[in-house]
């Protein structure tokens, strides 16, 4: 998907619309009204449970679902609970390193794919990444658990018995594929002529990469890393299989507390986590939009990037 080549079509369409718009929209047709109502209701539906969680985080009762009164006790209680604080710490720690690992690996692969033309391995590699993206998480989870156990015991690699290492490796798989696709999309939209010029002028590969290629792909790398951060922060299924006692990440703590009883602290921390995710995503949107303004681009490009697609 090249953002640049699409621009004229979009622009032409919007210009066209603004010319013919006033003439056609003299009477508002019933279909447009209905579809707009449907769209707004759809957005409300999407926001509904999120708003419920935020609202119930101010519940002063002992049980999350039965409302007692408004207050900030749950926030205070959450931060006085050492277990909760440690799970938040594990989550953020793992998310940070997942972002670094995936950004490095994914960027390399993204450049390789964008700059290899029609090499023989591209279809197979794309299929592998696609498989990583579409495999149900539960299958990933149940296959990683025995593998980590095996690596730790039979292969005598105790590093894979460490909880956070397992989590970082497990989270990085999906994130690597996402970063690869984002970086590839970015680099495919750039002509290789700058790099070729540098090569013709005698710059060695490493110099070419640092001076030309990396600055070009930087927005994609940054947004890929930030997306990996949020993906890791959200991961529940794989984490609940591979995590070890003592390094439980936040979502796994929430999932296991479903079996006993849900307390308002859970909604409180979830609200804070949501704010963190939104801040990170806002940063992603900012980085991508600023980069796209320079080279041209549009909302759908951003959408497909954020949706983790290609």
């Amino acid at each position: 998907m090249t953002a640049v080549s699409e621009r004229p079509a979009t622009e032409a369409a919007s210009v066209d619309e603004s010319v013919s718009g006033p003439k056609k929209r003299r009477h508002v047709d019933i279909g447009t009204v209905l579809i707009s109502i449907w769209g707004v209701l759809g957005l409300l539906f999407l926001f509904f449970p999120v708003l419920v969680i935020v609202a119930y985080s101010f519940n002063t009762g002992r049980q999350l679902q039965s409302w007692q009164g408004f207050g900030f006790t749950s926030y205070v209680n959450a931060f006085n609970n050492p277990t909760i604080v440690s799970t938040i710490y594990v989550s953020i720690y793992v998310a940070f390193f997942t972002a670094i690992v995936s950004a490095i690996l994914g960027s390399l692969a993204g450049v390789a794919m964008a700059r290899s033309g029609r090499a023989w391995w591209i279809p197979a590699f794309t299929a592998l990444l696609g498989l990583v993206l579409v495999t149900p998480e539960i299958v990933n989870a149940v296959s990683l658990l025995p593998w980590f156990v095996d690596l730790g015991t039979t292969w005598n690699l105790p590093i894979f018995s460490i909880g956070v290492v397992r989590l970082i490796v497990a989270h990085s798989l999906f994130a690597c594929a996402v970063v690869t696709f984002i970086v590839r999309a970015r680099m495919a939209g750039m002509s290789a002529s700058l790099e070729e010029a540098a090569a013709d002028l005698g710059a060695p590969p490493i110099r070419r990469f640092l001076d030309i290629t990396f600055p070009l792909m930087r927005p994609a790398v940054i947004s890929g890393a930030l997306l990996s951060f949020t993906l890791s922060l959200d991961n529940t299924v794989i984490s609940s299989f591979v995590s070890v006692a003592g390094s439980t990440p936040w979502p796994v703590y929430v999932f296991s507390s479903l079996r006993s009883s849900l307390r308002p602290e859970i909604a409180a921390v979830s609200t804070l986590m949501l704010l963190l995710t939104l801040a990170v995503l806002g940063l992603v949107a900012f980085v991508l939009l600023r980069a796209q303004k320079r080279v041209g681009g549009d909302a759908p490009g951003l959408a497909s990037t954020l949706a983790g697609g290609n």
Binding site: L46, F47, F48, P49, V50, L51, V52, I53, L64, T230, L233, D234, T236, P251, V254, F255, L258, L262, I266, A267, S270, M273, L274, T277, L278, L281, A307
Partner: peptide, 13 residues
């Protein structure tokens, strides 16, 4: 925004 809210948390909502 809801899509990037934690899957588990949305379901708890």
């Amino acid at each position: 925004v809801p899509y990037w809210t934690n899957f588990l948390v949305r379901t708890i909502g």
